[in-house]
């Protein structure tokens, strides 16, 4: 089936496996974008593009794409084999899941942290709280840059493993245990449909107006 996003070819300059099955792929930035936006990626010009959030900052020279291998998909197993100087088809950036300078909660599961990493690297993290959910202790991608800056405002919710640094449990459990969530701040959610929908229900139950909840779902 033909693609309906306009794609251009880019050359990969680096590919790193940052956790088992999880990669960061980089290419030279061909356009300007706003932190939080997505791009379409495909192996061929005529393939159906899949959407990924950009994980690098607005002023960085390189664009980073954080992804994990979906064994049932076609694109990510192929992408994971790419090396420096291989090519990939990319759309222009688009989307309006954008952060701003106001205090807010950034809540993500898995690779859903990507748009927040982009906002973080753009310098929007000063008055933010990041809640990141993952299964294992190695699931907290980019913790090496987030933790030193945000300290106690960076909560890692780990469902399968435990350590003194993490909250042992899911994001939803963490949110349920909170007794005074500010109702006038914005809550940004990004990740799987299941996490976003469940977390949104809990926030609403805790009195956050739905107007203050902004979600991005990976599909």
């Amino acid at each position: 089936m033909k693609t309906k996003l306009k794609l251009t070819k880019v050359k990969i300059i680096r590919q790193r496996e940052i956790a088992p099955g999880v990669f960061v792929l980089s290419f030279i930035r061909p356009w300007d974008f706003t932190a939080g936006q997505v791009v379409g990626l495909a192996g061929n010009e005529n393939d159906e593009a899949r959407l990924y959030s950009i994980a690098s900052g607005e002023l960085d020279e390189e664009v980073d794409i954080l992804y994990n291998i979906n064994p049932e998909g076609k694109l990510t197993p192929w992408m994971a084999q790419l090396n420096t100087a291989d090519t990939l088809w990319v759309s222009e950036p688009f989307g309006s899941f954008k952060g701003d300078g106001e205090p807010a909660w950034w809540i993500a599961s898995g690779t859903g942290i990507a748009p927040f990493v982009s906002m973080f690297r753009t310098g929007l993290h000063k008055n933010k709280k990041i809640i990141h959910g993952g299964r294992d202790l190695h699931s907290f991608y980019f913790n090496e840059i987030i933790e030193p800056e945000l300290k106690e405002n960076y909560i890692r919710c780990c469902s399968r493993e435990n350590s003194p640094e993490v909250f042992h449990g899911r994001i939803t459990q963490y949110l349920k245990e909170q007794t005074s969530l500010p109702t006038n701040e914005k809550y940004y959610l990004c990740g799987s449909a299941e996490m976003v929908v469940d977390a949104r229900d809990i926030l609403i139950e805790k009195g956050i107006p739905f107007n203050n909840i902004i979600s991005e779902i990976y599909f």
Binding site: V38, L51, F94, G95, S96, F97, V196, F210, N211, I213, I214, S215, E216, I217
Partner: peptide, 13 residues
């Protein structure tokens, strides 16, 4: 636009 993104996350994309 701003109302729709609160009701339907797809609006962001």
């Amino acid at each position: 636009e701003d109302e729709r993104r609160k009701l339907m996350p797809v609006q962001n994309v």
